[in-house]
Simulated scan of single mutants.
Amino acid sequence: MKTIIKYMLLCLLAVNTVTAQQNSQSINLSNAEVTPYEIELTQNKTTHILFPSSIEYVDLGSSEIIANKVEATSNVLRLKTVKEDISPTNFTVITNDGKYFSFNVSYKGQPIQLSYDLTKFEKQKSKKQSEVLFKDLGSISPSLVDLLMKAIIKKNKKELNIKSKTYGVEAWLKSIYIQDGKLYFHISISNKSNLPYEVDYISFKIKDRRTTKRTTIQEVSLKPIRSYITSQKINSHSKQDTVFMLDQFTLSDKQVLSIEVNEKTGVRSQVLKLRSSEILKLRRVELLKL
């Protein structure tokens, strides 16, 4: 009898051990699910979705739906079906700030709603979006980059005194910060004139300091990875702060960094020039109190 009981206990122990091993080796992915938005599409009407940031990536689950970014904007997506009564499908959108959006699509001849504003979820914080990482940002999340840029503007620390002023418009490089091999340039533009000032583009170029008439000017254009700009237009007697993120670089004693603020259809462009010694005055992002 004792032998039988021992045998039964050994069997139970073996079953429990196998079950424990199976449980330790498997993960329930339902806890990692990205909750999708439910949306209705139709063939004869266009549906528009307003995202909180620029659209970087769109993947459609079926060729029976078509999607395009609205040309005049970067954060509005328009959708419709190619025929009536399509099968249920889905699509995915990733925005510039790293947010990941998933949608379940069903067909309806007369959808109740044709326009969606997802920025409302940003304000209400009632629905969290998953976040992705971009190669050009390295290990820094897009939301952290956005937070750092806002913190730099809020801090408004005047570390540098590099200015350019013409026709009542003044550009000022206030500070440079660094984190994980990325440089943050804080530029303030003040419009003291009676005419609005509209920024066409801001460029970053490494140039030779001194050139002769017989020497070809050597320059290298640097492309910003990210930028924080609230508006391209600066009204009269107002100012705007912007932050640009660039990959880390260095200058020789014979080079300068030229930051050019170009006015759209105007002549009030500004040029800020930095030497290598001024680039080295950058501050660590850790010094900001977020």
Rank of each mutant, 00 (worst) to 15 (best):
Q25K: 06
Q25T: 09
I27L: 14
N28F: 12
L29T: 11
L29N: 10
L29S: 05
S30I: 08
N31M: 08
A32Q: 14
E33I: 14
P36H: 04
P36N: 08
P36T: 02
Y37C: 00
I39N: 00
I39P: 01
Q43I: 00
Q43D: 07
Q43N: 12
T46F: 05
T47K: 03
H48N: 11
H48Q: 14
H48L: 13
I49A: 07
L50M: 14
F51K: 08
F51H: 08
P52F: 08
P52W: 09
S53K: 09
S54R: 13
I55C: 14
E56C: 04
E56L: 04
Y57H: 09
Y57F: 12
V58F: 03
D59H: 12
L60K: 10
G61S: 08
G61W: 00
S62L: 03
S63A: 13
S63Y: 01
I65S: 01
I66L: 10
A67H: 00
K69S: 05
K69H: 02
V70W: 01
V70I: 09
V70G: 01
E71H: 07
E71S: 15
A72N: 08
T73A: 02
S74G: 09
N75T: 01
N75C: 03
V76W: 01
V76Y: 04
L77W: 01
K80L: 05
T81A: 04
T81G: 05
V82P: 07
V82Q: 10
V82K: 12
K83Q: 15
K83T: 10
D85L: 07
I86T: 06
I86G: 06
I86R: 07
S87H: 09
T89W: 03
N90F: 05
F91S: 07
F91Y: 11
F91E: 06
T92I: 13
I94H: 05
I94C: 04
T95W: 03
N96Q: 15
N96Y: 13
D97R: 13
K99W: 07
K99R: 15
Y100C: 04
Y100E: 09
F101Y: 15
S102N: 10
F103N: 03
V105E: 00
V105A: 08
S106R: 03
Y107W: 12
K108I: 02
G109M: 12
Q110K: 14
Q110A: 11
L114M: 09
L114V: 11
Y116C: 08
Y116I: 05
L118N: 12
